[in-house]
């Protein structure tokens, strides 16, 4: 970075640093609270359905919502116990 700065003759401005920090922080924070409210309920319902057939613990199901471009991706992970 120092080398790059030397050649380009430009130092990164504090405003650019602020923007970069905010973009990282906000994209992280949005995952936590911009998710729809139904995720916890969905997780519980899925857990109940799976439990009817397989004995699993509560923490064996995880539901996540991610953004990829224009689309939202709902990721569902069910860890089935070994026999």
């Amino acid at each position: 970075m120092a080398l790059f700065g030397l050649f380009s003759g430009k130092k990164k401005t504090t405003a650019a640093a602020a923007k970069e920090r905010l973009q990282i922080l906000i994209s992280h924070e949005r995952q936590n609270w911009r998710g729809p409210d139904f995720l916890p309920d969905l997780q519980r319902d899925i857990l109940d359905v799976v439990k009817k057939y397989v004995a699993i613990r509560d923490d064996h199901v995880s539901v996540r919502l991610d953004r990829a471009g224009d689309a939202s991706v709902l990721e569902l992970n069910v860890t089935l116990p070994e026999k």
Binding site: A18, L22, L25, R34
Partner: peptide
């Protein structure tokens, strides 16, 4: 145009949207 204000605005936007 300052980091803490922008972050808090984003938080409020999240609340508006939910």
């Amino acid at each position: 145009p300052e980091v803490s204000s922008v972050r808090d605005s984003d938080r409020i936007l999240g609340i508006l949207q939910s």
